[in-house]
């Protein structure tokens, strides 16, 4: 995305907000919702709008887990590491995702298909271990199920290619 495009999108979001500092986090959430991440230019645009020093915006963005500085993958994989998931082998599941995608937590695959991250707890403890795949919590995801889920994505991609 070009700098100009990023600025345009950001300004579009800013239109529906008043210039109150308390709006900073909702604005950043909305911008990220649109762009998938928070590029430098977007943060500068938000800082100017609210009359804040850019470092303030950067401080907030780097403080909260939800905000990302880099573009995400097409599919998001969030491995829950809540207590119940951990005790039921969530860390083993995370290892399996890392191994299969060849990336670490917080990274995106080179083909931009997947990004992998951990999440503190999605509150679905009874289905542990949980992986949230594209916003959908999946229960009882062990290494075998990781392979199955990836296979399903691959099939889907091949199906699209054929079409």
């Amino acid at each position: 995305m070009t700098e100009e495009k990023i600025k345009q999108h950001t300004r579009q979001v800013l239109k529906s907000f008043s210039k109150k500092k308390g709006n900073l986090i909702p604005i950043l959430q909305r911008v990220q919702g649109r762009l998938g991440y928070l590029p430098r230019e977007a943060m500068l645009e938000v800082a100017e709008f609210l009359g804040l020093p850019p470092i303030h915006v950067y401080g907030v963005v780097t403080f909260y887990n939800q905000f990302r500085l880099n573009p995400p993958g097409k599919h998001s994989v969030r491995v829950c590491l809540g207590t119940a998931c951990h005790m039921k082998g969530g860390y083993i599941t995370l290892d399996a995702w890392k191994r299969r995608l060849s990336i670490g937590a917080g990274e995106t695959t080179t083909d931009r298909e997947f990004d992998l991250d951990t999440v503190a707890c999605v509150g679905c403890c009874v289905m542990a271990p949980v992986t949230v795949l594209d916003e959908k919590p999946m229960g009882k995801v062990d290494p075998t199920k990781v392979d199955g889920l990836l296979l399903a994505f691959e099939r889907e991609r091949e199906g699209k290619k054929k079409q």
Partner: peptide
């Protein structure tokens, strides 16, 4: 913030928290 240009601030969290500049 008081006497300079306000380029310094805190960023990052936890063990990584430190005084730094934008980006």
């Amino acid at each position: 913030r008081e006497r300079g240009t306000g380029v310094l601030g805190f960023a990052h969290r936890g063990f990584d928290r430190r005084a730094t500049t934008f980006y």
